[in-house]
């Protein structure tokens, strides 16, 4: 019976690891960057800012810290949303953008850059259009009578394609010198302009993730399909709406401060599945921690590697994809059958 207890118990050591890993990487990332600062100076700037050089304090506390925190929350939001969507849509190939969030946000950002001069309007516009895209997907999915999961994914694909076309129109309309570069950078994702005011997005990201986190065990039953979940005693409509809304708010808030980052929401959940299995009671917290840690590291590389910053979306795929293939090979098999 001793081995019988291993799969479902909460493991204090694992919990501690999941919480401390992102905190460790946030701390670590304060020591690196293009502006070279010695380790003691970083520690001084953090804990005794009055004794430290003002410029160093600014770099550590006003630039690196908020940036690492934003990266952590964005990574966590995208990957936990991807994990939840994969399970409730019974489809391991979907990611956090499946219901049109990314393209909706992208169009919102373009709209703001072209017509409203960018700036703070970009965040609100991209957030609103991200939500609008999901609402449209939801209704598009309701029109047909096909199994609701399939029609919802199809609805998401249609809405994504629609907003993708609108993004192309905006690129076409944009001024090639003053506006197009801004659009292009936004669509490739970056944390370069993050400061404390952006961290307001942490609140909706946290709330969205909390909704998914609290429902995590019921997501197991939901992943068996609507009918089975219902006979297991799960209120399918309630949890689907809760989880989809939570994942949508988290993703939309993430994308509006970071720009489009596509890869994380697909692959981080699969890395989580390889590491701890598919039980969402564990997978959801693991995805949060793993997504946060991964994104901090990627952002650290993005701002340290070259003299001009590399876009996040590119680095995620460049570094993450080979790592994923390596894991696949090491684990000798897929994460789903």
């Amino acid at each position: 019976m001793s081995s019988a207890k291993k799969s479902t118990k909460t493991n204090p050591a694992l919990t501690l690891l999941l919480i401390s890993a992102p905190l460790f990487f946030v701390f670590l990332s304060l020591f690196f960057g293009r502006y070279r600062i010695s380790a003691p100076d970083v520690v001084n700037a953090l804990f005794r800012p009055s004794d430290a050089i003002p410029a160093v304090v600014t770099v550590v506390r006003q630039l690196r810290l908020p940036r690492a925190v934003a990266a952590a929350f964005v990574g966590a939001s995208l990957s936990v949303s991807g994990a939840a969507f994969q399970s409730i849509f019974r489809n391991p190939l979907v990611n956090s953008g499946i219901l049109g969030v990314s393209n909706g946000a992208g169009f919102g950002a373009c709209l703001a850059i072209v017509f409203l001069g960018g700036g703070i309007a970009t965040y609100f516009s991209s957030f609103l259009f991200a939500l609008l895209a999901v609402v449209l997907s939801w209704f598009a999915g309701r029109i047909s009578k096909v199994t609701s999961t399939v029609s919802l994914i199809l609805g998401g694909a249609m809405v994504s394609a629609f907003f993708s076309a609108l993004i192309s129109i905006m690129k076409y309309l944009a001024d090639p010198y003053s506006q197009l570069p801004g659009i292009t950078f936004w669509l490739m994702g970056s944390f370069a302009s993050i400061n404390y005011s952006h961290l307001a997005a942490v609140i909706p990201m946290s709330l969205g993730m909390l909704a998914v986190f609290l429902s995590r065990w019921k997501i197991n039953a939901l992943s068996m399909g609507d009918k089975e979940a219902a006979t297991l005693g799960v209120d399918v409509k309630f949890y689907k709406i809760l989880v989809i809304s939570g994942a949508t708010v988290a993703t939309a808030s993430a994308v509006c401060i970071s720009g489009t980052i596509g890869w994380v929401g697909l692959v981080i959940p699969h890395i989580g599945r390889m590491l701890t299995g598919n039980n969402n009671s564990k997978l959801i917290p693991v995805s949060i921690s793993l997504g946060a840690s991964f994104m901090i590291i990627i952002d650290l590389i993005a701002r340290s590697l070259t003299s001009s910053e590399l876009p996040i979306g590119i680095l995620c795929a460049l570094i993450g994809s080979p790592f994923f293939v390596y894991l696949l090979k090491k684990k000798k098999g897929g994460t789903v059958s």
Binding site: S7, N278, N279
Partner: peptide
Amino acid sequence: HNPLFPYTVRE
């Protein structure tokens, strides 16, 4: 029943 995610039997 279409098995999809490889949960353990216990889960």
